[in-house]
Design a protein around this nucleic acid. Structure first.
Lengths: 143, 143
DNA sequence: AAAGATTGAGAGATCAATCTTG
DNA sequence: CAAGATTGATCTCTCAATCTTT
């Protein structure tokens, strides 16, 4: 029930973002992670590990986001094998707009129905759950 | 955080099912819904509405499951436009095996970390959430 | 014409193989 | 040879168009 519900909600949130902002949920994901990173930049490999299961997936994702002007690639001067993904000004703007929509959705579908104490209990419990689930996940290929 | 956590857990559960039973999570989904239906049979359209966003997706999903021998199609005698998806004996067996794995996963990742009162609070709250999210979802195409 | 299911084309993601730099 | 990123092949799912039955 938890899983079905969350799945439905995520689905709705994704749809709203797509419809109102023309932004796929993955793009939002990328922008969020970039915002949290120092200098709003991350290595391809690191970013891939945070949001997808494959590096190749990120290559194509960044392709389209670069076309849309939200991020750009920057070859590293130090180690010329690595590439940084950098958020552009347009990317930051898009992130802010998207966040408004996303937060409104969270509020509407989720937070509104939970009492404060429930939220606290939930947060504490899920912290555990999340750690457990992440721990067992192999880095790239599953064994 | 709720969403990220649940997403990670669903991911793990899907992986385990795939690795240990060779069963994609969607198949499990189909079998579960069939089990709950009267006579373990459902119309293509109804099943599609419960599991996917498109009827065409179900067509192909049932194709592969039929090849694997877990379900079969049966043309209706009454209205020859409709087709029932019926669970086979092999399908029922596969369902039972898969359920053991799935339940074990739920227990490991989820239930173990939640106290009884949390579970109750959660279930009550999520009931609300689920209703809200489902209500606004358009049947096939989003407007 | 409408309901039910399928088919063809295209978007996104993964795996394995490849290319480049260290 | 190893690390980092990309490319090619393939899988699953969606949308729009089509075929069949009512």
């Amino acid at each position: 029930m938890v899983l079905e519900t969350t799945y439905t909600v995520m689905d709705r949130l994704g749809d709203e973002l797509q419809r109102e902002q023309g932004m796929p949920i993955r793009w939002y994901d990328v922008l969020l992670h970039l915002e949290e990173a120092p200098d709003a930049r991350l290595r391809m490999t690191d970013l891939a590990a945070q949001i997808l299961h494959s590096k190749s997936g990120l290559t194509r994702l960044v392709d389209t986001m670069e076309d849309a002007g939200l991020v750009r690639r920057e070859r590293l001067t130090s180690d010329r094998r690595g590439i940084d993904v950098v958020m552009t000004a347009a990317g930051l703007e898009a992130l802010h707009a998207a966040r408004r929509i996303h937060r409104r959705g969270i509020q509407q579908y989720f937070a509104r129905h939970l009492r404060d104490e429930d939220v606290k209990a939930l947060a504490r419990a899920l912290e555990q759950v999340h750690r457990e689930a992440r721990t067992l996940r192999a880095p790239e290929g599953r064994s």
